[in-house]
Simulated scan of single mutants.
Amino acid sequence: MSASILPHLPDFEQLSDRVWRVMGLNPSKYCLQGTNTYLVGLGHRKLLIDTGEGVADYLPLLKRSLATISPNAYISDILISHCHHDHLGGLDAIYRSDLNDPLSPIRVHKYPLALDSQDHQIHMDDFPKDIPLMDLQDRQLISVDSGGGDGCNMGRSTTLQVLHTPGHATDHCCFWLKEENTLFTADCVLGHGNVVFYDLVAYMKSLQVLEKMAPIRLYPGHGEMVVNGLHRIQLYLQQRQSKETQIIEIIRSHKPSHGGAWTAFDIADYIYGDDISLEMQHVIILGITLHLLKLQHDGRAQLLSTTDFDHDDHYSMWHKEWCYVGKCRL
């Protein structure tokens, strides 16, 4: 989605008494208006969620934002929602700046990845080796303000709970802001449009986890704040379920134009025809492939070929033939 047609988001904006959004200044088709980073906390101590992709102007903006909140505001901890560069690319500059006190260094937290995982090999091999990472754990509680507070915030707390929500990335986490009943959703739910996911089984389970939280508001990794948070999550679930139903109906009731079995490429062509642009073709076919893999996981679709394939290379699946279980002829 082009950033030029989206609502304008100011570079720095207070969203609640505990939350400020600082834009990553990297607008693009996939990052929308840019990566949203967030300063969280009532007192002088702030926790930063994500760091943008490392645009040069981001660090000066982050410093000005802190000074605007309070001359004494500082970052004690950084939470990285997941391993993608547009969320952790700015970390190195922050860590080597005067925002990081060598006598009390910023603590950096991220959910761990297996060293042999594809996500680690693609996204973490270049991670600065001299920046220590503290492992996040699912359901872990992180206290930003423990009730001490500053001035009028005395006695008020700010508590984040880690929710491991894979699907978009293996290490993806959302953060539940307990005192607000709100969610930092990173790339699990966006402010506009839909998410690119790489494991639909895991992604649907993650959405169901978020649905149970019933948030009143979402702070997404890209796009504007979502006021009716639960409704947006349920809409995402309904869209995936609707697409799954559509794919099942196609492979149960129709034959592709060439008369053979269905491939992800055929299904995309049947649904969208000439409406698919070349630049979006791979995203759409990838989504259909992942739906087919989920249907296989659920026992409702089957590959006609018994040839092994690489589950990490979804593009190799574009022309694999599928059938609905109960109608296969191997």
Rank of each mutant, 00 (worst) to 15 (best):
D17P: 14
I247K: 01
V196C: 04
D171L: 05
D92T: 09
L136T: 00
D86R: 09
D269I: 02
I285E: 02
T165G: 02
L278M: 10
I233W: 04
L190P: 00
A56S: 11
E249H: 08
D116R: 15
H291A: 07
R217S: 13
D199E: 11
P105F: 14
G259V: 08
G34F: 01
M134K: 06
H87Q: 15
D17A: 13
H123L: 02
P60W: 07
L286P: 01
L61H: 04
E13G: 01
A268E: 06
G167S: 10
D119R: 00
Q281D: 03
H87R: 05
A93R: 13
I267E: 00
Y74L: 07
E179H: 12
R21G: 07
D101T: 11
V162K: 02
D101K: 14
F184C: 10
L293H: 00
W322A: 02
L210Y: 04
L218F: 02
M317C: 09
C188Y: 00
S253C: 13
G260K: 14
T307R: 14
H291N: 12
P102R: 13
F184D: 04
K320G: 08
S253W: 03
L9K: 00
L115G: 03
L32C: 02
L48N: 03
V201S: 12
D77Q: 11
L292N: 00
Q246I: 06
T37I: 07
D269Q: 13
R18Q: 09
L141V: 15
G287V: 01
T185H: 02
I131M: 07
Q14N: 05
E279S: 10
V108T: 01
H172M: 10
K29T: 15
D50H: 07
V209R: 15
G41F: 05
Q137P: 04
L163A: 06
Q140L: 08
T165I: 05
L303C: 03
W20C: 01
S2F: 12
A67F: 07
N153G: 11
G151T: 15
